[in-house]
């Protein structure tokens, strides 16, 4: 059993990270905590995709060496370079995730302006019974 876990230990750790993010999105009542959970969730999935492109056995970063110097015919071997495709896709995903976070934070500020709280249960109570709304000056 321990050998079975140790053979793919990093996948187990990604699953644990994703569970932390999912729990923060579902179980926490504070809206900022929910957003932090969403960030953790996204980062764990990006980490999973990046780790797919890893090649063992002497592969380096996907930048062709010896380009432009000497003009010799360099023989490019596929096993010498990491898989560049997950890196490209995850570059897009990181930028989109920060755009999502920005819009979510703007909505959060609007929610705070209207309800003067960030706790989900208090917001739901105010929506159910508007007389419990306390103004902050």
């Amino acid at each position: 059993m321990l050998e079975y876990i140790l053979a793919k230990y990093n996948f187990w750790i990604y699953v644990v990270l994703m569970m932390i993010g999912l729990y923060a999105m579902m179980g926490k009542r504070n809206l900022v905590k929910k957003l932090i959970g969403m960030n953790i969730f996204q980062t764990s999935i990006i980490l999973f995709f990046v780790s797919i492109g890893v090649k063992k056995g002497g592969a380096t970063v996907p930048i062709i060496m010896g380009h432009g110097h000497g003009h010799g015919q360099h023989l490019i071997k596929v096993a010498d370079y990491l898989n560049p495709l997950p890196h490209v896709l995850m570059l897009t995903a990181i930028v989109v995730s920060i755009a999502t976070t920005g819009v979510a934070l703007a909505t959060l500020i609007l929610i705070y302006k209207r309800y003067h709280t960030l706790e989900e249960d208090e917001i739901l109570a105010i929506r159910k019974d508007p007389s419990s709304y306390k103004t902050l000056g």
């Binding site: 990181i94 930028v95 976070t101």
Partner: peptide, 25 residues
């Protein structure tokens, strides 16, 4: 892991701009 471009983007965009946005909010 060898994903240097992704590491650069994460360090600037997510750890830099994202933290600034969160702190401002």
């Amino acid at each position: 892991m060898g994903a240097v471009d992704v590491a650069f983007t994460e360090a600037t965009v997510s750890a830099g701009v994202g933290t600034v946005l969160f702190v401002a909010a």
